[in-house]
Amino acid sequence: MHATGTTGVVMAPSVFEGTASTVAMIVLLLEFLMLRSALLRAQIRLYAAQSAVVSILAAVIAHGRSLPELYVLAVLSFALKAVLVPWVISRMMRDSATEIAGSGALGVASEVIVSIGVATFGFFAVGALHIHSTVLPSAALSLAVAVVLVSFVLMIVRRDVISQSIGFFSLENGVSLASLVVAAGMPLILEVAFLFDLLVAVVVFGILMRTHHRHVSSLSTADLTSLRG
């Protein structure tokens, strides 16, 4: 009658795996917070926090699995995604008087419920593939895919350029998380190329945001309906 714990239906992961999964889970929870935050600056800060968590995870793996290359990646991705990109977007926002994101296409509670559904789908869809990694528990891969899917929901339901671009950048965070799980050993030069691409993309997003703001005088994308058919 009295179970001793370790004989339970679900075996406990090791301390390292548990910590890594928890950190990955924090990435997903931050994604959900982005979904609910109404202030654009709060959203940017959440993105910075999420990037920082991903970088920390890279450092944790570098330490736990003896992959010193990942330290470099962790530092680079922290500098780029947790510091530089949020700073660039904040600069872009300074010209605009808008502080509060327009209401999304759905209420927050419905958004969260939809996202829970989407994320759960991602969980089990990836879980069913049985892709196992030597670096991280496979739950982290499912979490990464869930982050990607929820970021899609974020981009779909939000109607302003800041939220949409933050959604895209956090999608990239999800992909980074996935790459830590299944491709931690990927040559550093490729990872750096990916990061560099992201930086250029940020600049282009910024340019187009400004163009948009100049024409529409707001950050909202609700009026972008003239091109159809």
Binding site: V148, F152, M155, V161, Q164, S165, F168, L171, E172, V175, A178, S179, V182, A183, M186, F194, A201, V204, F205, L208, T211, H212, R214, H215, V216, T221, L224, S226, L227
Partner: peptide, 23 residues
């Protein structure tokens, strides 16, 4: 501006998925 915004957002998301494929 509208076309460019739609293009960069949709195409970037697509390429995000393509990056996942590469990984």
């Amino acid at each position: 501006a509208e076309a460019a915004w739609k293009y960069v957002l949709i195409a970037s998301c697509g390429l995000g998925i393509a990056l996942l494929a590469t990984i």
